[in-house]
Design a protein around this nucleic acid. Sequence first.
DNA 1: GGAATATAGATATTCCTTTATCGATATAAT
DNA 2: ATTATATCGATAAAGGAATATCTATATTCC
Lengths: 229, 229
Amino acid sequence: MYNQISKTKKAVRQIKQAIPLQTLQRLPAYLSYLRRVLPDKKNVSARTIAAALSLGEIQVRKDLAAVSDKGRPKTGYDTAELIADIEDTLGCTNSKDAVLIGAGKLGTALLSYKGFSEYGLNIVSAFDTDKSKCGTDESGKAVLPMEKLTDFCKRLNIRIGIITVPAAHAQEICDKLVDCGIKAVWNFAPVHLNAPPGVLVKSENMAASLALLSRHLMEPDTSPDKDEE
Amino acid sequence: MYNQISKTKKAVRQIKQAIPLQTLQRLPAYLSYLRRVLPDKKNVSARTIAAALSLGEIQVRKDLAAVSDKGRPKTGYDTAELIADIEDTLGCTNSKDAVLIGAGKLGTALLSYKGFSEYGLNIVSAFDTDKSKCGTDESGKAVLPMEKLTDFCKRLNIRIGIITVPAAHAQEICDKLVDCGIKAVWNFAPVHLNAPPGVLVKSENMAASLALLSRHLMEPDTSPDKDEE
DNA sequence: GGAATATAGATATTCCTTTATCGATATAAT
DNA sequence: ATTATATCGATAAAGGAATATCTATATTCC
């Protein structure tokens, strides 16, 4: 099976088996690591990656098998090929435009962060009800008044919305984004958001992370204490 | 079992059964919801919570059973009591001090965020190598030079460190924090961090969230599409 | 060319989480 | 009082993910 009927396998993978949720969420970590070591390592094995990221070797191997079939005994994967396969799976190559609502501290921090482009995300513009925040951000991106949101999204066919407004207004903004045709919402406000079927809401739950840290400090017990990501 | 031998049950819960990881991470969402509705609702049922947060009723009931035994048929839980039990489990009551390293955009955003106190987190001070960033932040919190970190942590017995430095320096900062006696690291840099046993590292993996959003946009298929948090 | 070795891939098992089903009980209504 | 009902709690089943085990196969070394 090493390199002969790859087409068949890939087809099967794409048609029948969706990539497991947990695997999907680990892929960016692999990608980041591989990009970093590419200049040095032309080849990598699952074991190497596992050691670098403190993961189980078998788990990594299984994850990689879900996105690529170019692994070869004794040599492992060609790093560049593996990067390409992961990028392909994650859709890093085709740039996805997004709008960001709420030009507060967190909003502007995200707005000026350069790293999202590595995963194909491009924040086109920010919006805020506060006119004093409108204008051109330090990062060179525009902050527009809320009134222009709907027209903007529809004209540019934006499908991703990032919410960085206070919790009290998040649901209302979410509803508005849905009206604008947004299909995926990335929510940084600490509230649950309701959205109609077909619209995915992914909330960044910092409180959940805190719960983990807190428990660790409360239970200085004998546990082996693998780190959680 | 309704209200009679609660002591025994609680003891068993605390001794034998640790709260499942996934449950633990949902608790803050319950807490947030309960606090919001407390003025209106003296009592809540698992079903009510489930509906509000788009979760399964049985799942919520099981989660609540893990932290409280004060639920009663027909009436549900006393809201205030349930809040207290969750707070107790999460350790919201005793304030935990933390230091933050990296006073960039994201760092200062977190520094000035008021919401962490609701979960018992208190960011005492920030640190940065860049002297020009040192001084007193807008939020009233001090940004100190890195040289003072070790002494500061040891004197105040700080156990939580928040990393908001660029990825390239994150591991080195993490090592330093460990030297300072930090026991829990909250990492916002997009790299895996290694830490010795006994030190928990929780990374905020935004790229993983992006992967989810991205997949959703790539596969506009027939899936039922429950939203992910 | 043959043996040793590192590695991928497949299958099976175990574990954790979620979901389903059933029984018990406090409140409300008749 | 008796019955109905909403809800909790416990047990059981199902699903998904992590881990273990085994097999196959390139590469390397002799």
